[in-house]
Design a binder for these strands. Structure first.
Lengths: 218, 218
DNA sequence: TTTCGTATAATTGTATACGATTATACACGT
DNA sequence: ACGTGTATAATCGTATACAATTATACGAAA
């Protein structure tokens, strides 16, 4: 999340390698040599090392001491698991958000929904990209509203993981419209201070997302 | 988890700083200067830098680019939140473990329980330490048995966090005995292939732990 | 006195150099 | 031919050197 705007070389290298893994450029079990990557990106080994170690903590890379760094790869089962866990946590997040959300955050959520509807009706190449971005924003606001540093931390982590899955099976059919409708329902439940409903809806929201993926995959 | 046996300087420094934060040696918002720490531990800045960046990913340190590394600290609310999230995930873990556990893992769980009972009846300074260690082992086996790399990853992360809380309010009253009894109940539910019950028990197990903490704190 | 700007110092970011560890190749003996 | 041991090369781990950035001190002007 923060790395997006990290101007340091380490941050840039981190992004590059990450992208490379997610896009399949670096394949599973492939060895990532510090010197080679550094040379390719025109930087020294130092920022590469630091980037690799951060990627390890994110689970995208496995580092064997004194041996090397290897691409971990994410299986279909991993993706399923990610969504199962996220489903629970997003539910909990919605519950806490219901109890702690501010007027300002409510307004921002509404804004995001309105913008989502606008972009979803537009055509063009940036349509999907915009909607995905707004989807991310919607959830980020909820994370913030939960008022829990911890929950926000772990959900942001998963959000990163989830990007992998998104790249693959993204917004087919009328999933976009349905997703927005679900966002609206969640927002309404939060407005009504109905924590139970908000939790359930957020739960199902993620569940539907993964279900949609299954259809694509199968 | 792995860092425990990482013989590299980076791993050692990581441990040292981590311990320093958890024990309150480094206080909240305190600046962690690379050179100072390196000098204190008799190493250069390089491993210190890498350790600090790993600690950032764990949430114990905040790094502001070109400024410095600062101790994040964990509030009482954070601890509460950690246990709330862990409670859910341990429940999910127990459910999946019920579906995937092997005979070997079942046997190991039983071993751990027997050993726990043995040490809990002993007196001495290492009593608590041993029991805590075995508690960790019990849960680690469950994480493994869940057969989910993802769940294991996130739960291990939280386990690290949870250590903070343990240092403070640990095993008062008869919590040790009750905890072991709960472990036994979870194991039995898994043996019976009763995923619902296993999930519920694991859930409550964490809930009881945090409840016990509250009593201590209040 | 306050405020601003500049010079200086301190600290982080990156590059490079060197030592330690591991992988590879090849010769040797069986 | 096969396995083993040693020498060589490749790679990682750490230390050090230098550049970039940020903090601090101090003085001049309002």
């Amino acid at each position: 999340m923060r790395e997006q705007q990290d101007p340091s070389l380490r941050g840039q290298v981190f992004q590059k390698i990450r992208e490379g893994i997610l896009k399949g450029q670096y394949k599973e079990h492939e060895e990532l040599r510090e010197a080679a990557i550094g040379e390719e990106l025109g930087v020294s080994r130092t920022p590469v090392r630091e980037a690799l170690r951060q990627l390890e903590l994110e689970g995208l890379v496995e580092i064997i001491p004194n041996k090397g760094a290897y691409v971990t790869g994410i299986s279909d089962k991993d993706v399923q698991d990610i969504y199962a866990v996220r489903s629970m946590l997003e539910g909990l997040c919605a519950r806490w958000a219901t109890e702690n959300i501010t007027e300002r955050q409510l307004a921002r959520l509404e804004e995001v929904i309105i913008l989502s509807e606008f972009y979803s009706q537009k055509l063009g190449t940036d349509r999907e990209e915009q909607v995905v971005l707004l989807d991310g924003t919607f959830h980020e606001i909820l994370y913030e509203a939960s008022n829990s540093r911890i929950l926000r931390h772990v959900l942001s982590d998963f959000h990163k993981y989830a990007q992998v899955a998104r790249k693959n099976s993204l917004h087919k059919n009328d999933r976009v419209e349905k997703s927005i409708a679900e966002h609206k329902a969640i927002l309404q439940a939060i407005r009504d201070h109905d924590a139970d409903l908000a939790e359930q809806l957020a739960n199902e929201h993620i569940f539907h997302a993964v279900k949609n993926m299954n259809i694509d995959a199968g």
